[in-house]
Design a protein around this nucleic acid. Structure first.
Lengths: 347, 347
DNA sequence: GACGGCGACTAAACCGGTATAGGCTTCAGC
DNA sequence: GCTGAAGCCTATACCGGTTTAGTCGCCGTC
C-alpha cells in the first residue's frame, strides 16, 4: 500500500519543528533561521511534499484559478479561430503562476450570466475574463455586484470598474477599406457581425467612417451572426442587388471564405470581378485560392496580456487599461483593382 | 458593509441545531426528523446559503472538477474544429453535475505530461480526459501511476485500465473511398495525419484497406501534421507526380480546403479534374465552392459521453467501453466521376 | 423498575494548509 | 544584574465543510 501523500505535518515532524514554522519556511517568510529553513526544505524534498491547493484555497480564501465563459452555439464555435489562440495565450501566463483556467461553454446569454454566478458562488475562480463585449453588457454589472475581479477584452461602452485590454480592430478595417479604395473600388459592401456585439458594431462603424473619409456612401452593410452560413447568405443578398458591390469587407474569415464560395458558385472571378477581405486570420485563409486578404489580430498575446492584467488585479494592484498593437491589414490575393472604370483621379 | 456569505454555522445557529445536523439535512441523509429538516432547509434558503466547494473539496478529498489537456502548437490549434465542439459536449454534462472543467493548453508532449502531473499533484481534478491518443502513449501509464481516473477517446493500443469512448472513423474513410471508387477513380491519394497519432494511422490504414478491397494500390499517401499548410504542401507534391491522383482523401477539413486552394491555383477544376474529401466537418467546408464532401463526426456527443463515463468512473463504477455511432460520409460537391476512362465494369 | 434499542441530535475531530498570539533565548544597554 | 527588544519558534485558532463517537430521551419489553 503506497503511503498517503505527505502533509505539512509530516514535514514538520521529520524536521522536528512545528507546522507553522514549516509554512513560514516554505513560503519564504522571515523569522526562520537559515539552518532550520534548510532542514525544513530538505525534509520536504525527502518526503516529496507538495502543497495542497485545496487546503491553501480554503485557508487563504483564494481559488488560484481564473474563469472564462464562452457563449456560443455549439455549432458556431467550430471554425472560430479566436478562442483557441486566446486560451493558448492565457495559459502561457497562468501555468508559471500556478493558476488554472476554469472553462465554461454555454449556449446563450442567459446561461452565460448563470455560469458567471455559479463560478463565483462556488468560489471556483478569483477573477473572470469578459470577452465578446456587448452593448449594455449585463456581465459588467454582474461582476461588480459579485465583487469579482475582471478584465474586459476591449473597452465597454458603459463605465466599468475593470481594466480593459484592447486591440484596435478599427485600424485593420480602415486599412482594408483604404486599400480597396486605392484599387479603385467605389461600391464596397460590409458583412458585419451582430450589432449587439461591441466589436461587431465597432468594425461596422470603422467601415462606415473609412468609407465616408473616402467620399463614399456605406449603403451596403449586412448584419450577421458571424457564422459561415450567414456570410454565404449575406453574399448572395449583396450580389443579387442591382448595384452589387465590387468589393466586400467581411467581419471574420469564415464568412469571407463562405462568401468566396458563393461568388465562385455564381461564376464571379475573385478577385478580378469581386475583391474580398476577411478578419482574424485563420490559417486556412492563407491557403485557399485566391489567398484571403485579411486583418491579422494577435489573439495569443491578447490572451497573455489579459491574463497578466487579471492576475495583477487579483493581487490588489489597479492595473490601467492596456492597448495592444493595432490589428494589421494583410493584403493577399483576394483583393485587386476594381473591374469598373474609375471616375476618380487615382494615385 | 455587506455581510459575509453565510456558512453552515450560520445556518445551524438560525435553525437552532448543530453544524453536523445541517450537513446531514442538506445532503439528504437519514437521521434528521422531517420538521427539523424543513426548518434547516428554510434557514438555509432564508440566508441564501451556498455550499463552499473549497471546503467540501478539502473535507471529502474531491476536486469536483475534470481536467482536459490540449497539446497543440498555438498556431495549429486555430481552425481545428474538434475541440470546441468536444468541450461544448463535455460542458453539457458537467454543468448539471456541479463539476467544472479545468483546461490546460500546452505546446508539446513533454509539457503535456507535466500538465497532467501538475493537475493531479495540485489535486485540481478528479479525473482526466485522454484525447488524441498516440502509439505507446505515455499518458496511460502516467495516469495509472498517478492513480487518477481517466477516459480515453478511442481504444489505445497498449492495454489500458481506463474505459474508452470510441467513434469508428474507419467507416467514414472507407465510405469515402468506396464512393470515389464507384465514381470510377483508381488513382486515389490520401493526405494522412501524423503516424504517431492513433487516429492518424488508423485513418490511413482504413484508407489502405479500403483501397485493397477495391483492388487498388494505395501508393500515394503523404503524412502530415494536420495543418492547413501541410495539406497544401502535400497536395502540391501529389499533383506534381507523373501519376498524379484523380482524387484525394484528406484526414481533416482544413487540409482539404487548403488542398482545394492548391488545385484551383494549379488550374485544375474541382471536382471535374480532381475530387477531394475532408474529415470532421467544419461548417466552413459546407460553404466553399465546391462544397466539401467530408466525414461528419459528432464531437459534441463524443464530449458528452466521455464526460459521463468519466464521472461514473470517479463515482467508483467500472463503466465499460462505449462505441458511438460511426462517423458518416457526407457527399457534397467536391467529388464526382473520375475524369479518366474507367477500365473497370461500373455499376 | 431495570434494561435494551432506536431515532434525533450534539460535540468534536478532521481535511491541510495559513495566521496570530505568545513564549523562550540571547544579547545589548544602562 | 536587570530590562527591553529582537529573533526564533510553538501552540492554537481558523477557513467551511464532513464524519464519527457519543449523549439524551423515549418507547417497548420482561
Amino acid at each position: 500500500m503506497p503511503a498517503d501523500r505527505p502533509t505539512i505535518a509530516d514535514v514538520a515532524q521529520r524536521a522536528g519543528v512545528s507546522k507553522g514554522l514549516v509554512s513560514f519556511a516554505l513560503n519564504g517568510r522571515p523569522g526562520v533561521s537559515p539552518q532550520t529553513r534548510d532542514r525544513i526544505l530538505e525534509a520536504a524534498r525527502d518526503l516529496g511534499w507538495q502543497p495542497s491547493v485545496r487546503a491553501r484555497a480554503l485557508s487563504v480564501n483564494r481559488a488560484f484559478a481564473l474563469g472564462l465563459v464562452i457563449t456560443r452555439d455549439p455549432e458556431i464555435v467550430t471554425g472560430d479561430p479566436f478562442y483557441p489562440s486566446f486560451i493558448a495565450g492565457v495559459e502561457r501566463e497562468l501555468a508559471p503562476a500556478g493558476q488554472a483556467l476554469v472553462l465554461s461553454v454555454v449556449p446563450d446569454e442567459e446561461a452565460e450570466l448563470a455560469a458567471y454566478r455559479k463560478l463565483v458562488a462556488d468560489r471556483r475562480v478569483d477573477g473572470v475574463f469578459l470577452t465578446d463585449l456587448r452593448h449594455d453588457d449585463a456581465r459588467i454589472e454582474l461582476a461588480r455586484e459579485l465583487n469579482v475581479p475582471a478584465v474586459t477584452l476591449g473597452h465597454p461602452e458603459t463605465s466599468s470598474p475593470f481594466p480593459a485590454v484592447s486591440m484596435d480592430d478599427r485600424a485593420g478595417i480602415e486599412a482594408a477599406v483604404e486599400h480597396l479604395v486605392r484599387l479603385g473600388h467605389r461600391r464596397i459592401a460590409h458583412v458585419a457581425g451582430p450589432a449587439r456585439m461591441l466589436h461587431g458594431s465597432r468594425r461596422r462603424r470603422a467601415f462606415e467612417e473609412a468609407m465616408a473619409r473616402a467620399g463614399l456612401r456605406a449603403e451596403m452593410v449586412v448584419e450577421t451572426d458571424f457564422r459561415a452560413a450567414d456570410g454565404a447568405r449575406a453574399t448572395r443578398d449583396l450580389l443579387a442587388r442591382p448595384n452589387y458591390p465590387t468589393a466586400i469587407v467581411y467581419a471574420n474569415d469564415p464568412m469571407a471564405i463562405a462568401g468566396l464560395g458563393v461568388a465562385q458558385r455564381a461564376g464571379l472571378r475573385v478577385p478580378d470581378e469581386l475583391s474580398i477581405t476577411g478578419f482574424d486570420g485563420s490559417d486556412v485563409g492563407e491557403h485557399i485560392f485566391p489567398a484571403l486578404s485579411t486583418v491579422a489580430t494577435d489573439a495569443v498575446s491578447w490572451g497573455a496580456v489579459a491574463a497578466r492584467v487579471l492576475l495583477r488585479s487579483i493581487a490588489g494592484e489597479q492595473p490601467g487599461d492596456t492597448d495592444l498593437p493595432a490589428a494589421r491589414f494583410v493584403p493577399r490575393e483576394s483583393t485587386t483593382r476594381s473591374p469598373e472604370p474609375n471616375p476618380r483621379a487615382d494615385v
